[in-house]
Design a protein around this nucleic acid. Structure first.
Lengths: 122, 122
DNA sequence: CAAGAAACGAGAATCGATTATCATCTCTCC
DNA sequence: GGAGAGATGATAATCGATTCTCGTTTCTTG
């Protein structure tokens, strides 16, 4: 087991993911590498401080993290495996929903359903 | 202080709200009525079982509850006061975001910004 | 009014997520 | 090779949210 390189192992796993991962989710993907949960949290915290990572809250799964260089996008949450996938593209017409006097600075869209793998299995 | 009527006090407060409320938020609106936090949780739990309430997760504020008779709608989350407001209307074009093989069963939209009151104060 | 059932409030207990602690290990720079 | 700094893993501690427990109170029914 290498030391002092564990955090980069964490970052690599996050970069290879197809969506934001929670600390636990990330940790379970690192089983076998000997990386401890505390190190995962330390890496995530550092990444956010550095500005290389971003914490996002999708739904029901607590906070998840993903690289900050993925641009504006949204997520698809599989209700079976509870994994969040990145989506590309956005939606129009959000402004029409805003009540008078409110100022919008951002938006989040989450699509729910079953992913490819879970749909096949069903 | 009346007893055995506390739960209806909880339901009334929730019906009068302009958006979903968390247990704490609801409880703080009932300060002065003598209603305990446990009773708020009991009422919420019962309401969800009855089907009269629905639990929703907006963002960052944990679970919130609202009456189930409000139809399909979304929410606006004020980043200053952290209160969630009901919005009316919906958006189009969500289907185009779904990857091949995925099946969509629902969606959530949250607009972020500052509400009327907090915008005025700023 | 009396008895039993259900609801109540306060605070203890629990639960999951995150953070802090600490002894050990590894890397860097002599 | 050695010293010091920083990183690491295991685990304890913390924190907030929610649920549970218990003695008390209120409601219902007669």
């Amino acid at each position: 087991m290498q030391r002092a390189k564990q955090q980069s192992t964490v970052f690599r796993a996050l970069n290879e993911a197809d969506g934001p991962l929670s600390a636990r989710e990330l940790w379970s993907r690192l089983s076998g590498t000997g990386v401890g949960l505390a190190t995962v949290y330390r890496a995530l915290q550092r990444g956010v401080e550095d500005g290389t990572l971003e914490s996002v809250e999708v739904l029901g799964g607590g906070v998840r993290y993903e690289p900050k260089n993925r641009g504006h996008h949204h997520h698809f949450l599989c209700s079976t495996c509870d994994h969040a996938f990145d989506l590309f593209g956005c939606v129009e017409g959000l402004e029409s929903l805003i009540p008078a006097g409110f100022r919008m600075t951002g938006h989040e869209v989450v699509l729910l359903g079953t992913c490819d793998a879970c749909g096949d299995a069903a």
